Amino acid sequence: MTPSARLQAAIEMLDWIIAAARDNGASADNIAKKFFKERRYAGSGDRRAIRELVYAAIRRWGDRPESGRQAMLGLVADQPELRELFSGSNYAPAAIVADEPVASGAQIPDWLGDRFASLIDENERKALFDRAPLHIRVNGQRSTDMEVKSAWPEAVALALPHGYELPTGTQLEDRTLFSEGAVEIQDLGSQAISLAGAAAKPALVLDLCAGAGGKTLALSAMLSPDSKIIAADTDRGRLSRIEPRKRRASARNIETILLAPGNEMESLQHLKASCDLVLIDAPCSGTGTWRRNPELRWRMTPKRLEHTTELQQRLMVLGSELVKPGGRLVYAVCSLLDAEGGDQADAFLANHPGWKEISIDLPIGRPYRKGTLLSPYHDGTDGFYFTCLEKL
């Protein structure tokens, strides 16, 4: 493909991504897979160049552009070499005309700018758009750190036990240690939250928003095989992904429960006041994962954020009813917004005097508003806020 044809393809892919962001459709990564599946003529070099153009545009614009063309025209100011590719020739974008609408604005939407945690300064904001590293967690029940270092000599040990960073692009799926459940791909921030949950060695654990089970599996590897971990979620598709993962890791202490949205307690009644630990990795804006999913900015609106924080509040109350006296609740969000982090912890403790904050000693993160803040610039992790609370 010519450079102009690659640019036109990037514009077309961006149109798909913009529409999906507007209509709550598929993620940018899934759209890219479908896009290239329908264009098998695009070689590996073409696909790489098109992706780079697409993600340069996604990272550049905090507010959702009206079209892929507007997004790319806006990039011309940063990458003037793109101008000549708008030639109007075969397979090229149409020539630029005077007064044509162009995307503009900052990387972070104006309405979100003052909602970040106070520790998130300009350096932190820039780091939100860096390329995310590849972190893995070694399953100590299935392998050793020495075996992992032997398999990947380039692995760099991280601040937490069994955490390593590999070069971006390292293929894991075809390696024996991965197929045998000895390692899992997991951001160090997620590993830290799991470690905080495992600190008191709980015997009965409920992962209330388990998703595909990343933290469920981490807890299973950190706790005694005699412990019981229940992974629950309202999304059948995501929850079903735990089964092959737990078989691969030989995690026999994990059970799953599919919940009815808005009526979760119906399936959890038997756990009321029984759990040593309830982990709530709550649905959120995902501001802490912009390195991986920058198009999330195009999906979030003030109204959607309001609905999300209301759901978080409800989940915290629900989870608290399932914790036994002396047990713990760990609330976490992959967000750096106060509304989803510190504000939620403050509000819960103000309305539930039978709870107290527990300090967890970790080598990463910063104390922040009755919890811990993890961020790309300070910790090299995705952005997280989490708090550990104990029931009196």
Rank of each mutant, 00 (worst) to 15 (best):
L204S: 05
P376K: 06
G197C: 00
A157C: 05
P363Y: 06
D121A: 03
D379H: 11
L219Q: 01
R247F: 13
V156K: 15
L337S: 09
P353F: 08
F178M: 05
V76N: 03
G342L: 04
P261G: 07
D114K: 14
A196G: 02
D174G: 13
W16C: 08
I364P: 11
K391H: 14
L73T: 00
L82Q: 04
V333I: 04
T308H: 00
L336K: 12
M222N: 00
T168M: 06
S118V: 14
F35P: 02
R236Y: 04
L188S: 11
V54Y: 09
H352K: 10
T289E: 00
L188N: 04
L373W: 10
S267Y: 05
A200P: 15
A221S: 13
L223R: 03
E81M: 02
L373S: 08
D187Y: 08
G342H: 11
G105Q: 01
E38Y: 14
D99W: 00
Y331S: 07
T216I: 10
D346Y: 09
K272N: 04
D379A: 13
G105H: 03
N263V: 06
R64I: 09
V278C: 02
Q79T: 12
K324T: 02
L195E: 06
Q312H: 07
L53R: 07
R238Y: 13
A251S: 14
A71E: 01
G383W: 08
G181R: 01
N30A: 11
A155M: 10
N293H: 11
A182G: 14
R59N: 08
H270L: 01
A249K: 09
G380F: 12
T2V: 09
D174T: 15
L208T: 12
A157V: 13
A159F: 14
L374C: 13
A182E: 00
G74Q: 03
R137G: 08
P367D: 07
S150A: 12
V76S: 03
P65W: 02
R175W: 06
L389P: 11
S375E: 08
A19L: 03
F178I: 13
K356Q: 11
H270N: 07
P202Y: 01
R366N: 10
Y331M: 06
D235T: 09
D15G: 10
S375H: 09
A199L: 07
D110P: 01
A218F: 04
G383N: 08
A20W: 02
T144N: 08
L166S: 09
L259S: 05
Q269E: 07
A57E: 02
I358D: 05
D110A: 12
S67V: 09
H352N: 15
P133E: 06
R115N: 12
A77S: 15
K228L: 10
I11G: 10
A203T: 15
